[in-house]
Design a protein around this nucleic acid. Sequence first.
DNA 1: CGCTGGATTGACTCGGATCAAGTCGAGTGG
DNA 2: CCACTCGACTTGATCCGAGTCAATCCAGCG
Lengths: 239, 239
Amino acid sequence: MANRFIEKLKRLATLSDDDVDALAVATATPKTVAARRDLIREGDRPGPVFVILEGWACRYKILPNGTRQVLAFMMPGDCCDLHIGLLAEMDHSIQTVTSALVATIDRVEMDAILDQRRAVAKAMYMSQLIDEGTMRAWITSMGRRASIERVAHLMCELYLRARNIGLTSEPQFALPLSQLLLADALGMTPVHLNRVLKNLRLSGAMTLQRGSLLIIDPGKLVQIAGFDENYLHRRLRAA
Amino acid sequence: MANRFIEKLKRLATLSDDDVDALAVATATPKTVAARRDLIREGDRPGPVFVILEGWACRYKILPNGTRQVLAFMMPGDCCDLHIGLLAEMDHSIQTVTSALVATIDRVEMDAILDQRRAVAKAMYMSQLIDEGTMRAWITSMGRRASIERVAHLMCELYLRARNIGLTSEPQFALPLSQLLLADALGMTPVHLNRVLKNLRLSGAMTLQRGSLLIIDPGKLVQIAGFDENYLHRRLRAA
DNA sequence: CGCTGGATTGACTCGGATCAAGTCGAGTGG
DNA sequence: CCACTCGACTTGATCCGAGTCAATCCAGCG
C-alpha cells in the first residue's frame, strides 16, 4: 500500500523522485500500535515527530476535573508539529484511536529534511498551516455554533479530509470514532450527542452507525453546518 | 522604545548582534494603524507577515449568521504565521483592537531570514508553537470549562503573556478589550460575560474596569480557572 | 450465554441566551 | 457650563438548549 504521508505531501507540492525517496527512507520502519495507546503524554519531553501512516489518532487534554477535550483527529498521512522538539514539554497528549501504523522521524533527520528539501519543507509547512486553520475552525464551532451545527460541521470536515486522501469516494465511509470520543471533541455530553445524531438521522441529512458515516443529503448537511471548506485550503496557491 | 518583537525573540533563543540587526532592518518601517482596522480579511490572498510592535490586534472569523468568533489576541511582539504566504487565501481576518504600530515583512525577506538565521528561525518557530498551544487551550476552554472558569482562564493567560513581555509587573495592567470583544472571544453573550465579571468581582478574585485588569487574589483566580501555565511554554528546553 | 461497553431513551434541572430597560461616562456643540 | 448623544456597561425577567441522573437496549465476544 502506498505511503499515505508521501501521497499527502505530493498533493501539496511537487516533489522530485529524490524527495520521495528521502521521505520513504525517513518513514521506512513504522510500528504497529494498538488502539487507545498514548504515543506521548502532556508533560512529556517531546521526542521524534510522529507520522500516522494507517489508522486514526487524536490529540487531547485532560482537565483538572477529569473531563477530556479532544483537540484534533489525525487520520492517515497526518503528522504532529514539525518543530515539536523545540519545546521543553508537551502541552497535550496524542493517543491512537484505532490500531495504527506509526512512523517516527527524529529531530535531526527532520531538520535535515526541512533544510535540504525545499519542496518537502513547503508541503509540510502547508500541512501544518492547514492543521492550524482546522483548529481555528474548531474554536469557531465551539464558540458560536449550536450543537447540531457543530456535529454537522465536524462530519463535513472529516468526510472531506478522508476524501482528500482517498479514504473514500463514496458518500459512505468508515469513521471508527465512538460517540464518547466525538462528544469529547465537540464539547458536549455523549447523551446529547446521541440525540443530535438522531435528529440528523431523522432530518435525512446523514446517519452515523456502527462505525460508518453515510451522508444522505450532502446539501442539507452543508447547510445545517454552515460549512465553508475554505479553511481546509484545498485550492492551492498558484505558483 | 525597544522593539518588542526583537525583545520577545531574544527571550526564546540566543540571538547574535547580526541577528538583531537583521530583525531591526526587517521591521524598520512600521506603520501606525488606527483602532478597528482590518489588516487582512478572510478570503484575501495572504501578503506579507504582520508583526505587531505596539498596541493590540485580534484574529477573528465571521459566521454566516453574522456572529463573530475571536480566535486569538495579539499583543506587542506577536506576529502572524510565518509561512502564511504559502496559502491561496486567508481562512480568517486580522483586525487592530487599539491603534497599533504594525511592521510587515514580505515573503522573500521572511524566507531569507528563516533560511539564513537559524537562531531567529528557531525563536520564531517556538513562538508559533506557543501560539498553537494557546489555540489548543482555547479549544479546551470552550469545550469543557464553565463560563466563569473560561473568563478566569483567559484573564490568567493575558496577564501572564503581558507580564512575559514586560507590559506590566504590577497585579494591575491595561487591558483595552471591550466586554463585547471578550464575549466574542469566549463564545458567550456580552450580557452573560458582564454577569460573570460581576461574580469574579464579588468573589474578590479580580476586577476588570475602565480598560484595566486588577488581579486581587491571584491564587483564587488560578484556582477558579484551573489554570496550568504549561501551555505558554515559558520554561524553555535546555540546550 | 452471561458479560461488558457503547448506544439509546426518559425525566428533570440549570446555566446561559434572549429580550428589554435602564445607567454611566466621554465627547460635542450650543 | 450644561444639555445631547452615542456607545459601552449593567441589571432584571423569562425561556430554552444542553447537562445530569438513571434505566434499559444491544452487539460482540470470551
